[in-house]
Design a binder for these strands. Sequence first.
DNA 1: CGAGGATTTGTTAGCGCTAACACGCAAGCA
DNA 2: TGCTTGCGTGTTAGCGCTAACAAATCCTCG
Lengths: 337, 337
Amino acid sequence: MKATAAGTRQPSLTDVAGVAGVSHMTVSRVINGTGPVRPETRARVLAAIEELGYRPNSAARALVTGRTGTLGVVALESNLYGPASTLYGIENAAREAGYAITISSVSRPGRSSIADAVENLRRQAVEGVIVIAPHVSAGRALEAAPADFPVVAVGGGETAPVPVISVDQRDGARRATEHLLALGHRTVWHIAGPEDWLEARDRELGWRETLERHGVGVPQVIRGDWSSRSGYEAGRSLAKEPDLDAVFAGNDQMALGLLRAFAEAGISVPRDVRVAGFDDVPEAAYFTPPLTTVRQDFIEVGRRTFGLLAGRMDGGDRHARALVVPELIVRESTGPR
Amino acid sequence: MKATAAGTRQPSLTDVAGVAGVSHMTVSRVINGTGPVRPETRARVLAAIEELGYRPNSAARALVTGRTGTLGVVALESNLYGPASTLYGIENAAREAGYAITISSVSRPGRSSIADAVENLRRQAVEGVIVIAPHVSAGRALEAAPADFPVVAVGGGETAPVPVISVDQRDGARRATEHLLALGHRTVWHIAGPEDWLEARDRELGWRETLERHGVGVPQVIRGDWSSRSGYEAGRSLAKEPDLDAVFAGNDQMALGLLRAFAEAGISVPRDVRVAGFDDVPEAAYFTPPLTTVRQDFIEVGRRTFGLLAGRMDGGDRHARALVVPELIVRESTGPR
DNA sequence: CGAGGATTTGTTAGCGCTAACACGCAAGCA
DNA sequence: TGCTTGCGTGTTAGCGCTAACAAATCCTCG
């Protein structure tokens, strides 16, 4: 294919048709594989396309077909392992299905910022939108989701009238908590994520339920913000606690901060205190000590999210739900003493 | 704004014009702010837009203006801190300037996969492309970048005929290495990133140059793959080294693995060995011990990358270069003994 | 009070493509 | 031979929008 000189108009279907000596419709048929074309005609057309470096004009096609082949993703602007991985999972599945992905990131999720992002994407003429914003406020924003436009959510908005895919956070928290209880601890402390995150709520709920089901006392929950710093601060105050012996951190970053604070306080993990996290970030196996944590398969989440959106675009149910089951990964931080 | 019933055609400019009792051109002028419109006419038009829930058809607009307001980003499908942060920086800057971002991710970078991704994006009618793929092979792919289409690269392809923005990796490596030498160590070992990464090459080069400039022996470089696992393995073999006293890891993840291996081998950091990393991931301050590392401002990188692309789309130089200077963050891992 | 200019609105064409239908031609059949 | 059938190709219209120009309206001032 030759590069077209800068400033020159891009070749159109008609230009190709001229070179190939056919009508523009025949060229269209060759490109889209619609309608019958004699092999020898097809070859002439393909040669002309090659010669001119023709590239279909997607705007013109979209205008007439009403389809853009683009999906929108509203993503949280953060480097949190989960959301970023989910994004790649979605992108992959979408690309395989022939869709492009347009992202619109949101720095501080809120009812209106998410609605704005969705509106932005609609103006970009996306055919559907995936919202990755596992916040309580995101859930509320989705409650007002239009019925005439396909929106799906990942990990949030239980009550929203949109399909939702989520990892079973409660179950993951239950697994971690039961694992710690099974080791003989009287109770398990918890460092929760920010209150406005659904995942934080669910993990806390799973932890609390499990303690109650086992009839053990529920300690005061400690509130963090997912960051290692907040885990560190939580660890500093927990270190003063006289009968502390097991902690379940809401994510791996906070667990890391916790480990750091304990190390500084001369508390040995797992000998004095056992610690578990959530997410299984790739680094968790190399923390000091290696961290027991709950693994979420984000690639799978991304794939299934795309699937749900594809279904919804086909007129599927607004109330579809999909749940991905997490897995407990046991490492030294809850190992033998 | 009312939701349109499913299945109904979206309202067009003409529909709005009908309701407002004006011509479609007047509506267009109101929407785009082109040409003068009487305030009272404008109000009627806006009311009609509101009433119908009108949303401009971007395909039609793109068809006639030749502009889509979309940029493409070729991203590496990975959760590495740097690329992901850069992506957000770009998205932010682009959104502020009124552009949308379409991403195309690449799992294994290579000459052809990157060229394919760029071609994909061009078919999506993006106005320009940013390639985030700091590989040697990416650089080669960019050497064949078309002259008639704006492409910029972040962090790679020194020789490619496209604008490039990068963090000064050599300088960062120099800072880390000099910092270690200044602490009185005889030499500094290095765990390098994968050979096909430009960043890995530059960091290694900066390290090597610095050692040579100071006239100290250059130890055999150890090759990792950015992962904590590879850092851990490097640490296991380094632990056997009799006169080891300072290590500069190519990134923070590998430094983490290294710290883990040293902890297992009973080597104390910084007492027995001092360790520095690269990137300053948010967790680095909470490693055991907190890690001295080189900070890169990825948000700035994203912003400037967008700036370079904007310049290139305006007919700017294909050989523009921008360099972001990194910063050494000193923490306990190179602290007093 | 009417010419001339500025302001506001309308008309027309066409961007590049696909849908729908029309046409020509060869083959099949009676 | 005439009529159908089906294949391969062409013609036309129109998607929703903006650019360019044309027309109408309003004001200002001699």
